[in-house]
Simulated scan of single mutants.
Amino acid sequence: MSLIRTLVRYGFAPLFFLGFLGAGVALVGAGQSKLWLASLLVAAIAAALLAERIAPYEAIWNEDRGDTGRDALHAFVNETSAALSVATVPLIAGFMPASGLWPDHWPLWVQLALAILVADAGITLAHYASHRWAPLWRLHAVHHSVTRMYGFNGLMKHPLHQAVETIAGTAPLLLVGLPLDVAALLGFAAAIQVMLQHANVEMRVGPLVQIWAVAPAHRHHHLASATDGDVNFGLFTTLWDRLLGTFVAGRPTPRDGQVGIAGDPAFPAGYVAQLLAPFRHRDVGA
């Protein structure tokens, strides 16, 4: 068991990201239905849950706190809406005068890499703004209300905040004609990455933590302290955090009891209550 635990600690992050993303690129590139990406996402969730039990970062975070069903509902709604938004890409592209600028002659995986880098900039900046502008923070606070971190709650967001981040990340890409295949893979890549950011796995990624925004870096962002947690906003990379001056690494990462919202420990826990929370005048300090 100790050998398996070691393999998970060192191999989970790269194999999870490259394995599932590689499978997605292969399926889409072979002309298979994009519905296969939904099946791959279900398999990824199962793989993350298994890895969390083999090599947990915090064993207590594997215990349900009455939040698993709620997080599943958040994930279902958000991923369904993401899939529906991808379906509108051809329609949007038809109205973009610069739509012919996208390099659709490049290999599919290179196009995806480019889309990830561009989207990472917009999503990171929207995330950064969400900690500084009250209307956005009220939406984003839903995600920060979690009291444990595990892969599934990476998909737990207020749907309106997800829409804000999606628009910020994809608008530049849509303007230049992002193809439907790449858009679908980008959405899949984002779902895979947010699970890696929140996975309750004792990941050992070495120097990659300096450039890759996975759990060892992102856990700092979920500190309940508004000042200590105001760091590491990036989705895929740490590039934009470095430019913003908000990247940290090397300090002790949060443990149980240190994540959440310090200004509002009684944040609503139910799904419907969380959807309504941003529209009620509550003190949810960032």
Rank of each mutant, 00 (worst) to 15 (best):
S81T: 15
A217L: 14
Q193A: 09
W102V: 04
P179G: 11
V164R: 00
D120S: 03
Y57R: 14
T246D: 10
L112K: 08
A163C: 03
A55C: 09
L41A: 09
E79H: 11
H161M: 01
D241R: 05
S81M: 15
L91I: 13
P278W: 01
G206N: 11
N232G: 12
T237F: 14
A269M: 09
W109S: 12
L139D: 05
I60P: 03
L27I: 12
H218A: 14
A119P: 02
D228I: 02
R132I: 03
M156I: 02
P14A: 10
L27C: 15
L276W: 15
M195G: 09
H131T: 04
A215L: 07
K34R: 14
R282C: 02
G151D: 02
A266F: 06
A163H: 02
F12K: 07
L37D: 08
E79I: 10
A72H: 03
A134K: 03
W212F: 15
H105Y: 04
G94K: 15
A191E: 11
V182R: 06
V8D: 08
G250S: 07
A189F: 11
V28Y: 07
V182H: 00
A190C: 01
M156W: 13
A215H: 15
L186W: 06
H221N: 13
Y10C: 04
L3E: 03
H161I: 00
L84V: 05
P103S: 00
L208F: 12
R53W: 15
L175W: 10
L84Q: 08
T80V: 15
F267S: 11
T6F: 06
S130V: 03
Y271G: 01
V77R: 15
A141Y: 06
W61V: 05
E202Y: 15
P268R: 11
G69V: 00
S145F: 03
F267W: 13
H143A: 02
G94Q: 15
A171N: 00
I167E: 05
G187M: 03
G151N: 06
L180T: 12
V146Y: 02
P179C: 09
A30E: 02
A213S: 14
A83K: 04
D264L: 10
I167R: 01
A213D: 14
G263P: 03
A48F: 00
A93L: 07
A93W: 03
